[in-house]
């Protein structure tokens, strides 16, 4: 029985992956649709990265700091060193990871609320510093960023989509492997009870820092991918909404799970776009607020837990 279910899941996964890969083939090169999908993929990477940090019990309210740093570093080095964006995004990621470790050092001893405030503060500090360094970052004007694939190439948007898809799949698989590894188990133990984890001989500092570094790395890559898609970066990239979206996506999809951030990003984006067609604005945010509250209270494991809930109530 159990084996069957796993097989079904695997089947759905494989079929869906194939579908995702042939979307451009079925529907032709539809630039609008691919743009929407690309932005969704960026946020899938971003939310998954945020969720990994949350797995260690550390909820960041300022992940836009890493998103923006990744973007800026990647834009700056493509412009000054002439590196191709596909290489530069990893440099951006590494730099974000480096900053992540520094921030992690200040945070690891802190309790959840303190950590939330301090990370929130780091996004504000990153914003201030960026605008005060116009010679490097272009200040408020921002700087252009090379497109991931040059627009002179025919159907560049399709290649962009495939690159994003590959990176997203790779990131999700890596994060999946990490959570199944020693590190994932350690992080879970730390989240459940830090003191106990310590007694069990888990090096809490090391694993918490690792979570920070890996999460910041992937977040930096997501930020770099986004700005290389947009072709321009401005300090708006540090906005509060950019910090909060991955939280909303992860919680509604399912915290601490692999599928949660993915499902959450897609469902919320979908709801968001539909509400947009009705011309609602504040109502959309009110709905987001209500969804968050209801999910935290009634569905703490997010949307991915619905099937199991149904199963349990109808055995």
């Amino acid at each position: 029985m159990k084996l069957d279910r796993i097989n079904i899941k695997t089947g759905i996964g494989i079929v869906s992956l194939i579908l995702a890969f042939i979307v451009p083939v079925i529907l032709g090169i539809n630039q609008y649709l691919l743009t929407v999908l690309i932005i969704t993929l960026v946020f899938i990477i971003y939310s998954s990265a945020w969720n990994l940090l949350a797995l260690s019990g550390q909820a960041s309210l300022g992940h836009a700091a890493f998103f923006g740093i990744g973007g800026y570093v990647s834009a700056i080095i493509t412009n000054s060193l002439g590196l191709p964006p596909i290489v530069a995004i990893f440099v951006g990621g590494f730099f974000a990871a480096f900053i992540g470790i520094l921030i992690g050092f200040t945070c690891i001893r802190m309790r959840e609320w303190f950590l939330a405030m301090v990370t929130f503060g780091f996004a504000i500090i990153a914003h201030t510093i960026t605008t005060e360094l116009p010679w490097l970052t272009g200040g408020w004007d921002g700087i252009p960023a090379k497109r991931l694939i040059s627009v002179t190439i025919t159907n560049y948007i399709m290649y962009e989509y495939y690159i994003m898809l590959l990176i997203a799949v790779a990131v999700v698989v890596i994060i999946y492997q990490l959570t199944k590894s020693r590190m994932g188990l350690a992080l879970e133990a730390i989240r459940e009870n830090e003191l106990e984890a310590k007694v069990m001989g888990i090096n809490v500092t090391k694993y918490k820092l690792m979570a920070f570094a890996v999460s910041a790395f992937f977040t930096g890559i997501a930020g770099a991918l986004e700005i290389h898609h947009f072709g321009y970066i401005t300090p708006e990239v540090y906005g509060m909404d950019i910090s909060f979206w991955p939280i909303i996506y992860s919680i509604s999809g399912g915290l601490f799970t692999i599928g949660g951030p993915i499902l959450g990003t897609i469902v919320i984006t979908f709801i968001w776009e539909i509400l947009r067609t009705f011309g609602l604005m504040y109502e959309r945010f009110i709905l987001i607020g209500v969804i968050l509250i209801l999910i935290v209270i009634f569905l703490p494991r997010g949307l991915v837990s619905i099937p199991e809930k149904i199963k349990r109530s109808h055995p």
């Binding site: 949350a54 019990g57 909820a59 309210l61 309790r111 959840e112 609320w113 939330a116 909060f244 939280i247 909303i248 919680i251 915290l255 504040y282 109502e283 945010f285 009110i286 987001i288 607020g289 209500v290 969804i291 968050l292 509250i293 935290v296 209270i297 703490p300």
Partner: peptide
């Protein structure tokens, strides 16, 4: 404690808008 943070976030969105 994470739940408190997330719940507050929902309240912020709700009340502001």
């Amino acid at each position: 404690k994470l739940n408190e943070i997330f719940l507050s976030l929902g309240l912020i969105y709700l009340f502001q808008n």
